[in-house]
Design a protein around this nucleic acid. Sequence first.
DNA 1: AGAAGATCTGTAATCGATCTCCCAAAACGA
DNA 2: TCGTTTTGGGAGATCGATTACAGATCTTCT
Lengths: 411, 411
Amino acid sequence: MRARGVNQTGGTTTIIDVAHAAGVSTATVSRVLNGDSRVNPTLAAKVQRAVNKLGYRPSRAARTLRTQQARVWALIIPDVSNPHFTDMVRGIEDVAYSAGYSLILCNTDADAEKERTYLELALAEHVVGVILAPTSPDPSLIEEMLSRKVSIVTVDRRIASGMLDGAFVNNVAGAEQAVDHLLARGYRHLACITGPTDTTTGRDRLDGFMAALRRNGVELDDPAFVRIGDFRESGGKREMEGLLALPVRPDAVLVANNLMTLGALKAVVAAGLEVPSDMAIVGFDDSAWNAIVHPPLTCVAQPAYDLGAESARLLLSRIEGHSGPNREVMLVPTLRIRESTAGRSSRAPTRSGPAMRGIRPSVDDTGSGVGRGDDPARARQVDTVSPSRRSGANERRDRATGRTKGAGGTR
Amino acid sequence: MRARGVNQTGGTTTIIDVAHAAGVSTATVSRVLNGDSRVNPTLAAKVQRAVNKLGYRPSRAARTLRTQQARVWALIIPDVSNPHFTDMVRGIEDVAYSAGYSLILCNTDADAEKERTYLELALAEHVVGVILAPTSPDPSLIEEMLSRKVSIVTVDRRIASGMLDGAFVNNVAGAEQAVDHLLARGYRHLACITGPTDTTTGRDRLDGFMAALRRNGVELDDPAFVRIGDFRESGGKREMEGLLALPVRPDAVLVANNLMTLGALKAVVAAGLEVPSDMAIVGFDDSAWNAIVHPPLTCVAQPAYDLGAESARLLLSRIEGHSGPNREVMLVPTLRIRESTAGRSSRAPTRSGPAMRGIRPSVDDTGSGVGRGDDPARARQVDTVSPSRRSGANERRDRATGRTKGAGGTR
DNA sequence: AGAAGATCTGTAATCGATCTCCCAAAACGA
DNA sequence: TCGTTTTGGGAGATCGATTACAGATCTTCT
């Protein structure tokens, strides 16, 4: 008995073999396989039987060549090893899988050249869609995509022109929530470590930070309290060290992503200082670890999985022919309050004993609204132990694939 | 001025257009593009100029159809959102990228059916190679792969038959190191939460645990101290709760992966107990967070990035024609000692354990204290080679341990 | 000079599936 | 019965690159 899908000659089973076996033409086989209803049921059955017997699998390359459309999406992101993007990728993959598309994974490392290479690859591969978390994409390539009818959506970050569909998190609101929270907890000397200002995520988070300060009538103590990092651990560390070296230090810092938060935290510890008694920290991005780091980290949690899933749905709808005006889905981040912003100890800002575990902050805190952050009556935030995938919190209704409970942490 | 790569008719620029523009035949264009040295330099230059002017990009579909080889690898793993696999993926992607291959990403969620689907996809896509972190692959599909000359390697986990190249971590040794360390720190009542026993990772880690106990003349207190988890956070939590519910509890637990460690830690905290005074914990897998969780976690760190990179190199060498006996690359894990195994507190609260060795108060948490174990008994590990690998354990010793400078945490 | 190589270059078959034509047969109407 | 419409299905062109083979040109040697 020979292996499935291999014919006598050792080559691949082709549509011709099937047609032969079923005593019909290749056209008929193709029609049956593509669900053309006009075929005689009897013949269709015969074809099906032949297909099964031979273990025939159509060649995607041939189909792609003929139809000029590969059932493949290119997924172009800065770095899979960043948990934020990782979760996004899962969201995308789940939607893509259930719609029958596969993904080509492309890490740009925020390098414009690699990004360009991958966009060209996407064209050469005839992918039918592209999901791009842009760094600094070549506009002419984007245009070429569009003129070649390749659907393309952005995710996580916007590109300048705003001519594409996209799914984003409301970063301004997220940063505002964080600032409101810090102020409510009594911090007054706030600093911000944000990301590169050529990314919308970097800019928006800084904008939200500044806007919330302004709205609350609080001034920035020192221009040097605004630091531009690189979204990496090393950058977070460096910028935090910069802050610590200032003559007058901030008492609270908003750090604009997960890796920089890590670096910042390490810098604080390395300096022999304590969080939050010497300095409070709010991070961006939640992770399963944030609840058990020392101290547990208050953060602006982004619905990364849903972000990915939403972008995938946008892409899907474009591929399936939707052609309305551009749509941008804006998801709402959630402030998760933990101990790294426990509040200014009423006693002087000196050192207070070892890690004050167990200061369970009473969650009376205002200024943590969803959305605009200017509504005084709002739901209180509680630390939800289960990571990310909290339900609700976004503006769109159906989230079909919730990807049940920790599915697949398998190793 | 028209967009690059699009010709007058609005269609894609093809090799024919280039041939036309350069005044040569398509064969010559193809030769130039594929670096056939026999072409006249003058002509080659003319072709190159035409290529540039037209923005020509060869169609991968056509090339794939003709050569029956897509410059694509299928990467089939349980779950990208597990940091361990994420790092592996990065290692693989970097090698693939620099060799000019792209990756199709496939998450199986440890589901045999999805795994099967993706293996079939790989065949249909004519991928030239597959990297598989197996769950329970259909042997007949593997055979078909081989008979169709699709290169395939395994990574992270072995499959039963051992008929494939693969890159693995020495899990037995890793678990042994962990146990030796726990014993040296004075713990005597050890338990283990391992993974599904149909994975080699689950089995090997348990084997190492048992072997080290035996070698040290320590008995397992209770058969219930061996727990089979599911490699997920929920499973780690559940099994730890199981341990805590026992009449006599262990004083130290080895947990066989990152997510279960997280769950286990949360279970301990939820029970109002402390690590390490009430219970020591050693995890598997390091992460940037492990150094700052509370308490900092001792763990067996796996070189996940290199694991991926090695598997990619194995695949590459097969694709490029290597046809020796099967090779298995075995990487050595590293014990990172932190505070979660600080040693039995002298006022042993619950039970009176046997005498212990001195407590080491100072602890490395830089994450760089590679293998600085305090256990003289520990077997020194050298790059191990599986029986089937004759020579050349060292031919790859100089793995350019990738990824310096924290490449790409960008967001 | 002429023959035998050596070196380029072009022609055309080929990969496998899709899909436009077009024909044959069946169904229908008068 | 004959003409017209409907329907099912086959032949073959086509997608774009690769490559075996053949032809053309240039060397080199007798």
